[in-house]
Structure formats: structure tokens, C-alpha cells
Write a protein that binds this DNA or RNA. Structure first.
Lengths: 234, 234
DNA sequence: CAGTGTGAAGTTGTTCACAGCA
DNA sequence: TGCTGTGAACAACTTCACACTG
């Protein structure tokens, strides 16, 4: 990843602070969210190509696999700092590493989930997030019937125990899968307990201090697009 | 929903084909996908307000709840054909009905799911899609160990049985939660079996005839955004 | 000559500004 | 005054065009 930096060492000495190269601008400037959203698809595909023994891949060919514009792929990859060779493309193994690094998929983030209902249960059951560097290690609820049980090996605790456990385990991510009426309250607690990022599935805006990251995900969004198309295609 | 059409009947007689009203243009013109994605959040919130006995709601107040620009909300609601009264807002009950109609959430879509792994299992477990008008009625796999079992009451059949069952039950939606290597193959089968819309969770572009709707959903996209922010906020 | 890299053009979606209304 | 409704300005993202490279 730093070959790149050394390549441009000479220029940097000439004109120090202003005018960094395009590549660097890309790396430090805000990366468009749509680009970040596409990156996991690149990564999954690359892992597959790698397991098939493919060494090189060009942006246009990635583009065909994913039905994306070829230059879009080139630009997206540039955001990560990757660079390829004309006529050949990118080195699959390098690209995988760069993407994992960029996305933070190679870290071990541990998460607590609050609200052990159907949605919470589904997220826990779906072990796939581990491949992306996040592991749900415990769930919390206030329903006495759920407390003490476990979901696919993940224990469900009383919400009151969150604080103590989160502090001891250095938990960074909190997942909210409660009804929206209690989402803000849970978020406040999470912030107080030192959580750094909140993944909120309740369809409500959550207010947090600016140093805490919030990602809202509305589970019905994709379904809405399909059903709406079905509705209007008749 | 058709009160609206009758309201404008007079104008329509005057200048028939060209120059429809703004409202109608909105309804027939392509509705931006981001707008459709926001609509389920409106709906969920409105249902909640309704259960609290609230009769009217204004766009600006919806906007505060969801942290969206107020005029965005007005425009989104206009796409559905809803209209409100200045100073008062929209009638909650009407808005719910209009949104459900527009999104197709008040229909009973039955879906078959292929690929009964963790992701497939999680989607089945999560019963919440029923609230949005979609019910997963059966799962299919080629793994003999899974065939014959059931997940939260949803039976897992041999993939070979899909065709017969899909035809008899008038299934409209097919969900693909297989590895991407078999996704295209499954999609081809689904198309041949009369499925009208495919919800694809494999990170690969699927080719289908133009009359079939495809919605690609990449499960890691949202997580990628969070982890990336975590990574770059340090 | 197939592919990277990048500025410019084009498109889409969002936010602003303001007219009209009760 | 607080709200709907809408055209216009603005910002973000995507696609195009093309110079450059091995």
C-alpha cells in the first residue's frame, strides 16, 4: 500500500504542503458512500477469484461480473489507494488485502446487540458478519423470558448488565434492534457506556454526540423497491 | 387514492394527452429509488403515530423524527399521490393507506427462497417481512442434510421440487441466498419457472429477461460504511 | 490495443426560495 | 404564521472522452 507513497516521494519534496497527487487526494478526501457500499462486493468477488487461482483482474472484467460501469470500478479502487498496471489490471491478492484494510474487515470488532426479537435473532443467527470483521458477542433485552437463554450460542443478558460487560470487553459497536419507541433511550445508554458506533435498525433518527458514529439501516428498503416495481410493472 | 384523479378530471378533459398536472406527472414518471427507500420508514413511523391516536402529521415533523430535509418529505409524499392541507399537514390514516398501496405492502406476496444457509435461515427467521406483504413459504436447497427439515416452521425442500410447487402456489418472488457461483443458475431456473421478481443476495450481477425484476442486496454494504467510518475516525 | 487514470460533461437527487393557502 | 407545493440552484454521483502506458 505504501509503494505508492514512495513512488511520489520526489515530487513531495519539491512542493510540500499544497498540491498532493490525485491518488492521495482520493485517499484522504471523503470517499463517496456509494463507493464504500460497492466495495464489499468487489471483495467477495475477488476472494472467489482468488480461490479459483486467478492472479490478475482488470477493472472492466470486475465491472462485467457486477454490472457496474468500468470506470466506476477504476475510481472506486483508486479511493482505496490501489493501483493497477495498464493492459494487465490489478493483482487479486493485493487488492483483497487493500480492500480489507480500507473497509476494516480484517479487524476484530466485537458488538453488543440490544433487542433480542426476530430481527435481533436473525442478525445473530446470520454468522456472516464475522467474515466482515464483526462478531456479535452478546445480546441484551428487558424481557425476562428471553434473559438467560441463548441464540445460536450467543447469550441473552439483562440490559442492566450491558454497562459492566461493555467496559470489560472493550466493545466498540452497539446494534439496536428494539422498537423505535425505545431506540433513542438505548442509544443514550450506549453512548454513556463508551460505544463508538451504533448500528440502528429502528426507523427513527437517533441523536448522539458527534464523536459517535451512527448508521441507520431500514430493513424494508430493498423489499420496498422490489414490491413497488412489481406493483407498477403490471 | 383516486379522489385525486377525480379532482383533476375537469382539467384532463380540456387538454387531454399533453401537460398533465404536476401531481400526476409525479405518479406516472419514474419515482427516484432513494424516495422509495425512504417510504417504508415513513410508513413505520406513521403506524406508530396512528397507534398513539395522532390524526394529523406535517411533513416537517415527520422530517424531524427521521432526520430528513422537510421538503424532501413533501416531495416523497407527492410521489405517492398524497396531498396535505397547509397549516395542518396530512391525515395519518390516509397516508398509511396510500403508502401501503403505493409500496404494495398491503398485498400478499408469497416467496420461495433458494439456499438455506445462514443468511437464508436468518431471512426466514425474521418474520418481519410479513408486515411488508411478503411471506417466505418454502425454502429449497440441494444439501440432503437440510432437505426435510424446517426453519421456524418453513419447510426446506429439494430444489427439484421448486418448479412444481411454484406453479401450483402462484409464487411471484424468488430469493437467492446461495453462493454467487450458483446464483445465475438458480436465477435461470426461477425465470423458467415463472417467477416475476428475484431478490438476489449474491454479490454478482444476474442476467434475466427484461420482464423479470431483479433487486440486488449486498448484506455487507451497511456494515462497510460503519467499519470504514470507525477506521477513519481514529 | 486493452487497460489505467483523470478531467469534463451529463445525470440524478437534494436543498433552497418563494408563491399560495387557511 | 406554519404548512403545502413547485421551480430553480446546488451538490453528489456517474458516465464519457481521452491522454498515457507497457
Amino acid at each position: 500500500m505504501n509503494d505508492f507513497l514512495t513512488n511520489f516521494a520526489v515530487q513531495k519534496q519539491k512542493e510540500m504542503i499544497p498540491s498532493v497527487t490525485e491518488h492521495e487526494k482520493r485517499k484522504s478526501a471523503a470517499v463517496p458512500e456509494p463507493a464504500i457500499r460497492r466495495m464489499p462486493s468487489y471483495l467477495t468477488l475477488l476472494r472467489e477469484l482468488s480461490s479459483e487461482g486467478q492472479e490478475y483482474i482488470s477493472a472492466p472484467r470486475l465491472a462485467v461480473h457486477l454490472d457496474i460501469d468500468p470506470t466506476q470500478v477504476v475510481k472506486d479502487l483508486a479511493y482505496t489507494g490501489a493501483s493497477g498496471r495498464p493492459r494487465v489490471g490489478y493483482i487479486v491478492a493485493d487488492l483483497i488485502e487493500i480492500l480489507e484494510e480500507f473497509l476494516g474487515f480484517n479487524r476484530k470488532h466485537e458488538a453488543f446487540l440490544v433487542g433480542a426479537g426476530y430481527l435481533g435473532g436473525a442478525l445473530i443467527q446470520y454468522q456472516g458478519f464475522r467474515e466482515a470483521g464483526m462478531k456479535i458477542v452478546a445480546a441484551f433485552d428487558i424481557d425476562k423470558k428471553k434473559i438467560g437463554t441463548d441464540i445460536s450460542g450467543v447469550p441473552v443478558f439483562d440490559l442492566a448488565k450491558f454497562r459492566d460487560l461493555a467496559g470489560r470487553l472493550h466493545i466498540t459497536i452497539g446494534i439496536i434492534t428494539t422498537p423505535s419507541s425505545s431506540a433513542q433511550q438505548i442509544a443514550d445508554l450506549m453512548v454513556g457506556w463508551g460505544i463508538k458506533a451504533i448500528w440502528n435498525f429502528a426507523p427513527i433518527a437517533i441523536k448522539v454526540p458527534s464523536h459517535v458514529i451512527v448508521q441507520n439501516t431500514h430493513i424494508y428498503s430493498n423489499l420496498a423497491v422490489i414490491l413497488n416495481k412489481l406493483e407498477h410493472s403490471r
